[in-house]
Design a protein around this nucleic acid. Structure first.
Lengths: 199, 199, 199, 199
DNA sequence: ACATACGGGACTCCCCGTTAAT
DNA sequence: ATTAACGGGGAGTCCCGTATGT
């Protein structure tokens, strides 16, 4: 746990890795996943194809957001800290506000950019399926603990499914219309969920 | 172009096609998409690889549920026929009951089997992304018309996103636990949505 | 054994194969074996690298002269047909004259060209080691039978070793000096062997 | 630059170098050249791969017998010292006896072991091609000077070619049959050469 | 002196489009 | 008209050899 001086070399590796992934996602979004070759990604990142494979075992892994964890470390405590009189959806909305405010604006933009790239290319969903499921499970556990329910309770599982579905829908819509603030739109959508989708 | 007697030859082609797809989905679920070769699918279906490609232009197309349309032709009129005093979610629940009851039990099982195969292999989601989006859009239009809203209205889009997310979640859970009746679980989940996800 | 019309396709394959090999040997001789990439060979032969590997499993196999057999089918009967009063070396010299006269001049030049390419690149010797050993063994058996000796007899093995060593030496020298007639030089060298290498 | 006390450090380096090469040749003979990785050689010699490359610039160099020179320094004077009434082959046979007797038995066995390893793996011939050619040229010059001929004289070149071919053949045979004394077999073979390969 | 990152080439496997032969 | 052979090309693995730390 002595991460103090990450070592000059480690930093270079991290930068190389991030660079490769950025170029990859940019190309994937522009040309599509299948139409992009690893060679192109390598050329764009100014490394050799070997190096790409050294950092990402398969082409699909170029689209896996392993550092997504940063959010995963912020959300649980923030959610648990919400006052108990809030409903689960209210607590979640408050948590999201806190979590995103905690991110530096630069990070926030970069993350959004990256997530959008993946959301818009169906081929890349599969690569992150595990992460999404884990995220849902984590959320499910938080909600279950808060409500004194079992994580397998249909109400809990419906909750997480609905939240995920709504999030995807809203973020995709926001990506299509650059004037929308994704965060705000998501908050509004969760409010609608709370109201029982009145239509 | 008369659809009445589909012709002996047409039927055989349809059967071959269905057989290939069934074997493909079975293998995909068992071994994964990437780990399954077209040659294996051909061998399992007892045809030549060339034939597989004659029925399905690409390997991915083996996972595309084009006939899913059958449901698409049943749902819209059934939904439109629901009494106006029902909420959108109530109408949807009623519609689903009607639509599935209209299917022959054999068809119902086969379809469920097939859909599950795809749902459980993330790699195959992408292949059906277009279908899902179209399905959501269709549902959105139906709901919008019923409620006198615009299809782009946030409430409508949140509705379809939530319904899809909940459906996926419930069906995956049902697949893991064979004792669950997927239809009943879905109905229950939609009821929870209607109640505003009380937790 | 119905090789009459070898089929249009077979011929094309044979031509492709020969073309690839010719280009490969040319490049090997010009740039060396290691310095030549399969990609270059493919480009020179105007096919894709995949195709090169389809015809030749490994890069080394590009240098294996499998059709060398043609000579192998001519020499044994010709050698056996030599009058018994000749010594083994005399019989061999006569056989070589007959065998090479039987080749079309064009074939002869092409073969010589090809063999020289290999002889001049040490890296390629290994690829043909098996062929050479088999050739020596065949010659040894012919000589042994003719002389009523065992193929394992030291005299027989010394004979084949000397003939091979002398052949390589002479052909390499002939390659360096284009004015020399390789056949004639070889004949002269074998005569010297017969004379006990008088020096 | 005094060769007297080679220095403790020098000796250790020499031992490391020899150890690496021995392990390499052993592995090459057992598994083949291509199938043996530098990593395996390093592991066998209990050093790191980096160290292997510090002693031997390329993998092929592991098979180059640079110290073979020791023989090269012994043979020329011994050959020149043979009485002039001997034929070249007689002089050579006498020289070989002297040269090998001059080697310590331990060295002799080690050298034989090493040479055999190379002789039995065609892939390694190429690595030593230069040495062999140089050896032949040296022998050719010695013979030419002795006989008052030109080194390019066909008789001289045939001589060296035959001697090399016979040597290779005999040593390979001897390697296959451990009961044979390679030296004796070689002497016998050279005698047969002198007799004009009577068969 | 060892470890590590990197470039790059050989090689295999497979998808899939084209072409030809039955 | 179906099937099979052929071909292109990209993914991915392995390893050599170099260059850079440490």
């Amino acid at each position: 746990m002595s991460a103090d001086p990450p070592g000059l070399r480690e930093r270079k590796k991290a930068r190389t890795r991030a660079s490769i992934q950025q170029h990859a996602l940019r190309l994937f979004r522009r040309q599509g996943f299948a139409a992009t070759t690893v060679e192109q990604v390598a050329a764009a990142a100014e490394v050799s194809p070997s190096t790409v494979f050294r950092y990402f075992p398969t082409k699909e892994d170029l689209a896996v957001l392993d550092e997504h964890l940063s959010l995963a470390t912020v959300i649980p405590p923030a959610f648990a800290a919400q006052p108990p009189e809030l409903t689960a959806l209210q607590a979640l909305r408050a948590t999201l506000r806190v979590a995103f405010d905690a991110l530096l604006p630069a990070d926030r933009a970069a993350r959004m950019e990256r997530d959008m790239a993946i959301l818009q290319v169906p081929q890349l969903w599969a690569a992150n399926a595990r992460l999404v499921v884990e995220g849902m499970d984590t959320l499910g556990e938080l909600v279950a603990r808060r409500a004194g329910r079992d994580p397998g309770d249909p109400a809990v599982r419906t909750f997480t499914g609905a939240v995920l579905g709504v999030s995807v829908r809203v973020l995709l819509d926001a990506a299509a219309d650059p004037e929308t603030d994704p965060l705000e739109a998501l908050d509004e959508a969760l409010a609608l969920l709370e109201a029982g989708l009145p239509l």
